[in-house]
């Protein structure tokens, strides 16, 4: 049994310690906003905040993060109105949308650490996440918008 805090609530997960955090979130807790894309820390579709830092949930065994504070896209804001989410809508970023929970969590972590990132800093941070639909142009615009409106 692994104990975690997920989106502010204490939870217990009945799964082997080597179970990826992503599977625990999706299949044990029903938080399906975080996505499986590669299982290899390559695409970032699974990005969540682990004790505040953007982390690939797909390669994080739950046994390694006992007691950690996990935030997922479902817990980023009460009503989907985090500045990054609002900027994502304003810039009409998502196409298929599958990677976008991860992109949003990555961007939110960036802005918490660096509220006024330069364009280069945005691109550098967001290069940890991939998007096959090619929404990159709008991702940059949306992060810039979120930084300016937050």
């Amino acid at each position: 049994m692994t104990r975690l805090t997920v989106n502010g609530s204490a939870v217990e997960i009945d799964a082997p310690p080597e179970t990826p955090l992503l599977i625990a979130l999706r299949e044990h807790l029903g938080l399906t906003g975080s996505k499986y894309g590669c299982g290899a820390a390559m695409c970032g579709s699974c990005t969540v905040h682990l004790d505040g830092a953007a982390t690939y949930a797909c390669v994080t065994p739950i046994g390694d993060v006992e007691g950690a504070d996990v935030r997922t896209i479902e817990g980023l804001s009460e009503n989907g109105d985090h500045p990054v989410q609002l900027a994502w809508i304003a810039e009409q970023v998502p196409q298929c949308g599958y990677c976008q929970s991860g992109q949003i969590m990555r961007a939110a972590a960036l802005l918490e650490e660096n509220p006024r990132p330069s364009r280069e800093e945005i691109i550098d941070a967001m290069s940890s996440n991939l998007c096959r639909c090619g929404t990159y142009v709008r991702i940059v615009k949306a992060v810039e918008r979120a930084a300016s409106e937050a």
Binding site: E74, G80, P94, G97, I104
Partner: peptide, 15 residues
């Protein structure tokens, strides 16, 4: 489709 896709609330096949 974009609001739900910006909240992690859009349900795909694997979900």
């Amino acid at each position: 489709d974009i609001p739900a896709k910006s909240r992690g609330a859009y349900q795909y096949g694997v979900d």
